[in-house]
Design a protein around this nucleic acid. Structure first.
Length: 610
RNA sequence: GCGCCUGUAGCUCAGUGGAUAGAGCAUCGCCUUGCGGUGGCGGGAGUCGCAAGUUCAAGUCUUGCCAGGCGCACCA
């Protein structure tokens, strides 16, 4: 008679941490254990430095205290039947999974074990495409970071909404409409509307100073558009339509799904008018001819209830123009209106915006202004108390990213110094095709190109997301597509190789009976530890908006799996009834699922063959 | 001038106030003709920009300097 699997219920990581956090040390009930992942997984899955923090009030040295605390922890774990072993190591309280639980974990679905949900309504804004302009290489970072944050934040916030803040309004449309009327090449427009619009915009801008009253003519075109002139309106709508078609094509090329919303800049006209009226009525800004501005030094002093550190920051924000001398609303003013609209109409509690890092100052100003306005009773009266309460400094977030360029000598300059997104993908795909041909020369061209595309996208996304968004990136297509090292290709390769083992073994996941008798090696247990603690990584990644933590986790998992796999006996040569074979295959299955899950959070699709 | 960001190995970069600061590339060696070796193991390589401070504990927090990048008003 074979022993039956343990009847103990599977406890996920998040659950386990919660229950361990409920434990309060005798004599120190007010000091939470604050469980963390240890720096080195060989120490276990969780560690607490409670003894340090409790040492002072108890007057004992941390190491002595730790062994005393350990008795209480042992009793707690035993009482609650948690599948854990624990040990005081010097002043640290270390917790590891009990040996008997590994087999059970191996058979469980570790990926289902995700984050605690937060009911906040969160808006994530990214892409930042403009009407009549193609995506260029700089947009890649926005797409990568935005799309990845979307996937990561969704794990924590079921009420996540995404928005593409579409650049579809403003004086530039006066320029475009004016240029279209004076210089459009109809044949070129039919052939490729976006290219012709880009040309027209450049041409139109270049006429400043050459044409009398250029500024007036351009402004009049935009004013006509604003006031609903039928011709300009129809043309503008057509520009928007062709631009959206172009954008969805580029997004598909890059494997990024569309956002939930596409609230272009024009969408906020009414709210800006309303805010303008509000600011005028209450004299909340300074007038300078047509222009209107806010002085943040003043504002920091009249802001009721602001805390001191924030006040010190806000007073350095300088002056912000919200209405220009020409009477146009500015970008900053639109960002104020955007957050009002989100808070009021979408009931957004937390708003995250992804743009390049040079815009940080603009968002500081816009966030400070809307937060200040939200403290005014008149604002709550006009826009709702709930709306006002949602607008809080610590919940308005700007994620800035640095610039991206190709390594010198490898930049495509066919279209001047702007590298379009499809060209970037093409450039990296060529490097990937070269690398693939080197190892599989006989591969048919179609198959090679398909793999090259997968490798190119994975390489680009990995190179981008494996680091802090703020750093500037110089891409070397050859380096990022290499199979060895910490590259996207290495992750894809590891996945494909392990999947191949499962295929050859005929693994279908159905047979778990022989698992029970398996003895796992220390290497295997450490991999299971890693798989088990992934939600801890995801939590920090979501809390701090940092996809690179997910990338680090994926890399470490792939590395650990490779290390074990290469050192272990050949799985396919083990007997079909050998429990070690079942355990190894099951582990590979868990690893590949987790790798795919992690890579997917970075927007990277795995492939079965590479 | 003011503000923000950055400064960690030769290079490119990770690094939750906590245990011996880690990867990749490059470099020097070793294992392995392999279930997908494009792998794996190891060596050398660090005053974590400098200096104070807070703390039981600082690459991490605070302050001051130094260097680089980016903003600073009606572009987005």
């Amino acid at each position: 008679m074979k022993p039956k699997p343990s009847p103990a219920k599977f406890i996920g990581y998040t659950d386990l941490v919660r229950r361990l956090t409920d434990w309060r040390a005798l004599g120190h009930p007010d000091i939470p254990p604050d469980w963390q992942t240890p720096p080195d997984m060989s120490r276990g899955i969780l560690t607490s430095n409670l003894a340090f923090r409790a040492a002072k009030e108890s007057g004992k040295n941390p190491a002595t205290l730790a062994s005393e605390l350990m008795e209480g922890l042992v009793a707690y774990i035993s009482t609650h039947r948690l599948p854990l072993e624990c040990q005081a190591v010097g002043p640290y309280l270390n917790v590891r999974l009990s040996q008997s639980s590994y087999i059970e974990l191996l058979g469980a679905n570790l990926i289902e074990n995700t984050l605690e949900h937060d009911s906040e309504r969160v808006m994530l804004e990214y892409i930042g495409a403009n009407v009549a302009k193609r995506l260029h290489a700089g947009h890649m970072r926005n797409l990568n970071i935005g799309d990845s944050l979307r996937r990561i934040l969704e794990l924590k916030y079921p009420n996540l909404v995404t928005d593409n803040h579409w650049g579809d309004w403003g004086v530039q449309f006066g320029v475009l409409l004016w240029a279209y009327k004076h210089n459009v090449d109809k044949a070129a427009y039919r052939a490729s509307p976006i290219d012709e619009l880009q040309r027209l915009y450049v041409w139109g801008s270049s006429q400043e100073g050459k044409v009398d009253d250029w500024a007036v003519q351009v402004r009049d075109e935009f004013v006509m558009l604003e006031q609903g002139d039928a011709g300009n309106r129809a043309r503008w709508e057509e520009f928007v339509t062709v631009s959206k078609r172009e954008l969805s094509h580029d997004l598909a090329l890059f494997g990024v799904p569309p956002t939930d919303l596409e609230q272009g800049e024009s969408f906020y006209e009414a709210d800006m008018a309303s805010l303008r009226e509000f600011m005028d009525e209450r004299e909340l800004w300074h007038a300078e001819g047509e222009a209107r501005y806010v002085d943040f030094d003043e504002l920091s002093q009249i802001w009721q209830g602001i805390d001191k550190p924030l006040a010190a920051r806000v007073r350095t924000f300088g002056r912000c123009y919200l209405i220009s001398t020409n009477g146009y609303t500015t970008y900053a003013f639109r960002d104020v209106a955007v957050r009002l609209q989100w808070a009021r109409d979408h009931k957004i509690d937390r708003a995250v915006t992804v743009t390049d890092k040079t815009q940080a100052h603009n968002f500081d100003q816009a966030f400070a202004l809307i937060c200040y306005l939200a403290t005014l009773p008149a604002f709550a009266k006009r826009y709702g108390t709930a709306t006002a309460e949602r607008l809080r400094w610590d919940r308005l977030v700007h994620i800035g990213y640095g610039f991206l360029q190709l390594a010198s000598g490898k930049m495509s300059t066919r279209l001047g110094n702007v590298l379009r997104l499809p060209e970037l993908v093409g450039e990296v795909s060529r490097a990937a095709a070269t690398a693939i041909t080197a190892r599989a020369p006989e591969l048919p061209a179609a198959e090679r190109d398909a793999r090259a595309r997968a490798v190119a996208l994975a390489s680009l996304k990995w190179a981008d997301l494996n680091r802090d968004p703020l750093t500037d990136v110089t891409l070397d297509p050859e380096a990022i597509t290499r199979f060895e090292g910490n590259t996207g290709t290495y992750q894809l390769y590891t996945y494909a190789r392990l999947r191949s083992v499962l295929r050859r073994a005929g693994f279908d996941g159905s047979d778990r009976s022989s698992l029970v008798e398996a003895e796992l090696t220390a290497d295997q247990c450490q991999i299971i530890d890693r798989l088990y603690v992934m939600p801890g990584v995801l939590k920090v990644a979501a809390d701090e908006y940092r996809p690179n933590l997910v990338a680090s986790y994926v890399y470490e998992l792939a590395e650990a799996a490779n290390r074990w796999y290469v050192a272990s006996p050949k799985i396919l040569e083990l007997g079909l009834d050998d429990p070690a074979r079942a355990a190894s295959l099951r582990l590979i299955d868990q690893v590949t699922r987790q790798l795919a899950f992690g890579l997917n959070l970075l927007g990277i699709q795995t492939v079965e063959e590479l």
